[in-house]
Design a protein around this nucleic acid. Sequence first.
DNA 1: CTGAAAGCGCTAACAG
DNA 2: CTGTTAGCGCTTTCAG
Lengths: 343, 343
Amino acid sequence: MNMEKEVTIYDIAELLQLSAATVSRALNDHPAINIKTRQKVNAKALELGYRSNTFASNLRKKTTQTLGVIVPRLNSHFMSSVLAGMEVVANKAGYHMLISQSLESFQNEKSNVRTMFNNRVDGLLVSLAYDTETYDHFAGFVKKKVPLLFFDRVTDYLGCPGIVIDNIKAGQEATEHLIQQGCVRILHVTGNLLRNVYADRLAGYRQALRKAGIEVREELVVVNDLSAEAGVDLAQAIMHMEHRPDGVFVSSDVCAVNCMKTLQGAGYQLPEDIAFVGFNNDHVSEIIEPKLTTIDYPGKQMGELAVSTMINHLKGIQAIDSTSSITMHTRLIVRASSQRAKS
Amino acid sequence: MNMEKEVTIYDIAELLQLSAATVSRALNDHPAINIKTRQKVNAKALELGYRSNTFASNLRKKTTQTLGVIVPRLNSHFMSSVLAGMEVVANKAGYHMLISQSLESFQNEKSNVRTMFNNRVDGLLVSLAYDTETYDHFAGFVKKKVPLLFFDRVTDYLGCPGIVIDNIKAGQEATEHLIQQGCVRILHVTGNLLRNVYADRLAGYRQALRKAGIEVREELVVVNDLSAEAGVDLAQAIMHMEHRPDGVFVSSDVCAVNCMKTLQGAGYQLPEDIAFVGFNNDHVSEIIEPKLTTIDYPGKQMGELAVSTMINHLKGIQAIDSTSSITMHTRLIVRASSQRAKS
DNA sequence: CTGAAAGCGCTAACAG
DNA sequence: CTGTTAGCGCTTTCAG
């Protein structure tokens, strides 16, 4: 591939009448090296177009300066914010990111984990796929004590730390808000209940209802994939319900917004006929009319926190198992989609 | 870090009374290895939990099976779609992706390129930062003949292939559409003209105007960063214009949509007072009311195409310089935001 | 079909 | 402050 021969530390060493070890140390800013030597070496390296060979170095040091990241999908507003946050912190600390997506499939997740393992990432950050039920595919990491951290969609099967928001509380707040607005028949739409994020929001929803003395009805809980298309289907389903809800709490803004548009197209008045609350504070929540009440979900900060926690651990500053879980703040942003005259 | 000793091919070799060379070959499905030996080796490897050491292998083979990707930002709808497309193709072909973001800064881009270079990625895929004016930072790749490919925001300074859409044509179509709708004073809002995507759309806009015999006025071209905030500022600027435009063509849906919302908030009727056309077919374009006419921009496909072009080249199937540039199709999606009674 | 041997480029004892 | 030495784990001629 590369026609020109690569310059090595030996070339520099020879030209400067030094040993390779000295050159190596100089290049790595080893304190016990004469400043002048260091300058000479650096100058020569630049002159020759030297580039350090990461593999040789990794092979020796048994560290890769690389973090693996496995996410369900790269292309969601939330996830790309998380990744953006991660990249900044990782980059600043001199780490690289190897990124792959499971596309919500357990099989892909498994193979991605394997790849990360073979690539000897220094640490692995994972947000679980929709249908992951077993965790044996992470066994290699646990066994080799390679730090593993989950974010957003977590598990505590493996005793690894997780970065999450308080989904129960968020679900509760969203529901309580609808109740305060006079809703008594609240539909909750969420994702696969295997995942903590969805199960917890549902739990919060139920708590809020119970606390308000409203009966919890199973037919008012819908599980779908929270996609835009699912939002359209949801609207159809709502229109065909015998007893239509007067409030809807959806675990995703994108899904909520598409549902709203469809209902509006069919002549529904929002929030008068049905009040809506979404989740994520996605960009679309401010574009829809009426603007969507939602839960602000700090994706970028979550990414930053996940990586900095990981790196602190890798640097030995912080034992990773000492932190079993970090919970981030969320808050309800009230907008027009849910505001009605008090009952 | 890892408490347990790693299993190497030597361990397997010893246990099986073979040479390391044979084990290596067996593991790599070398044709000249007895099927039985191969099976024995693979079984043993599995049993011992062997994992190949990528560095040692890379160090020898001088290839990394890794593609570097540098994008302006990870968290835009368009870019995350591109990356999602890239990941799928790369993964399928057994390549990994090292991803970093320039955050639209030339300095970051430079340092990211350097990192990719030191990491000896097999190929580099780049979408240029906003303010990149020189291309010396890519010299290492060119010199070492490491394939370099640009997508979306490209340059032909380096004679590298680029994957693009026909921005001139798209800009022209968008503008012509507004003209057909009776607009005669069309404002064009776009990004830094250093970047082909924005310069070309502007060129298309101008062509369309000239073709229709409409005077091209410099005060009707606005350059900003196309962010949501810029959209709000834009609306303010429009409201303060002496001669307000009757049509606006914005190079980004997000920016367009925020501008529209602000104008609507100030009492403007859209599209009656001002017709809008955006760019990208972002999710928000279907949420805003009236829905935004826009140019469909196939992000995922662009990502897929970029990586498959790169990989074909790496496999030697296709010389990379033979393809100097690939242009992808776009199309105008007409929605309510631009439809007015014919003049 | 299999083995021996050399070396990819770097770093970390250890010694001076 | 600098040099010597050894070896990380793998692949690849070259020989059988």
